[in-house]
Design a protein around this nucleic acid. Sequence first.
DNA 1: ATCTTTTTGTAACACCAGATACCGACACGC
DNA 2: GCGTGTCGGTATCTGGTGTTACAAAAAGAT
Lengths: 231, 231
Amino acid sequence: MAFEKYVEVLSRAELFRGFDKDEVVSMLKCLEPKIKEYGKGNYLAVAGEEFQGIGIMLEGEAAAYKENIAGTRVIMVLLKPGDVFGEIVAFSSQSQWPVTVEAQQPCKALFISRQKIVGECRHLCPWHRKLIENMLMMVSERALTLSRKVEYLSIKSIRGKISTYLLEQYKKTGETTFMLPMNRNELADFLNVSRPSLSREMCSMRDEGIIDFHRASVRIKDLQALKRMAQ
Amino acid sequence: MAFEKYVEVLSRAELFRGFDKDEVVSMLKCLEPKIKEYGKGNYLAVAGEEFQGIGIMLEGEAAAYKENIAGTRVIMVLLKPGDVFGEIVAFSSQSQWPVTVEAQQPCKALFISRQKIVGECRHLCPWHRKLIENMLMMVSERALTLSRKVEYLSIKSIRGKISTYLLEQYKKTGETTFMLPMNRNELADFLNVSRPSLSREMCSMRDEGIIDFHRASVRIKDLQALKRMAQ
DNA sequence: ATCTTTTTGTAACACCAGATACCGACACGC
DNA sequence: GCGTGTCGGTATCTGGTGTTACAAAAAGAT
């Protein structure tokens, strides 16, 4: 198979971090991946269908949807060349795609079965373990992101969410004055609250002298009060 | 070191799944773990402190706490012999304990550094890769659990949560009548709502003829309505 | 059998947060 | 200049949810 075409993309993918291009090629020979092409609107994976493995985007763009029981679709993530999907489920005891992946544009993806990654490698290639380590790192990072998300979602009050968020920014920058990396809409989305409610609460916190802000610039005036509000 | 004492516990630990007792012993020689003892109230790990590795409980019981910025403690999980902690962070780019682990009783734990797990193995022992695979599986399962939690937390209304939960139970058992695996208190905790609110909502769903229940036994009467309520 | 503890349902009330609509500030285009 | 679009703040209203407290039922203990 003509993997050479995609070595450029793959060597930049997280899964092959630490591999040079030659090594990627020899890994691919060992992994025996399947490359598939999709037209716009085609499905790269359908939630609930069987597959034990991972997918890597090669060309084009696809969207990973989650469908709740009522049938409503929620876009989880937009997949671009080099992105991996299905990595969490591939190595757990489950064996079905957790999401539906639909091509937004004509695209190509490469699929590697779980067995080829963790199973016995016939060629005893020395890079195999490095590959599993990379997988381990990717899944760990993913778990960590989810864990942070759970923390924010578990906070009941808007004030608690805002305070926790601002304190995290403070901790990150070390300054009581900093810039928010998103606008109100995005922040509201991130904190899982409505935009007007976020505005209302931020303003009343300003009125109470806890914080001060203008647009994206925020200053913490009363650190102790903020810490008290964080849940 | 006298690992033999703990081989029994360790061979039942998830990390050593698929290893027999001899193999566990030879793995341990290679991993060079450190065994530490703690009195009741001592800390096995303190959130924020440096350590790149994992811990495995050998004896006794410990609690993993999460401390929010305000200082309130929330018990995340109770650790028993064979349980692993710190596995998510060990293999991500972070290098600090995410939780504080406190001994509830006098206890012993074993610590393995990240390097000994993923680093080059001097003895080239054949079980090393199997060990990393086990790690990969454990972290994946953990990520999956977190992902499910995020799904539940993202549902805004109590009805939506209840409906989604009941539909999942229905899907799992294949029966419209089934037993809930937890009591109201635990279910309320799981769905992140207050116990009386959960009761109130379940009862009004019963009044509307959507479900019927008595204690832990639940019967779905109107599947379509339930599906509509799931968000 | 009786007492205690746990579990669950119920009610009243307060209040937080979402929905919606509107306004002002600002940037950008022509 | 003017129109247009985006972004953020504000007001009103309503509904859903937490809190608290108490009662009833069930389970467990002695």
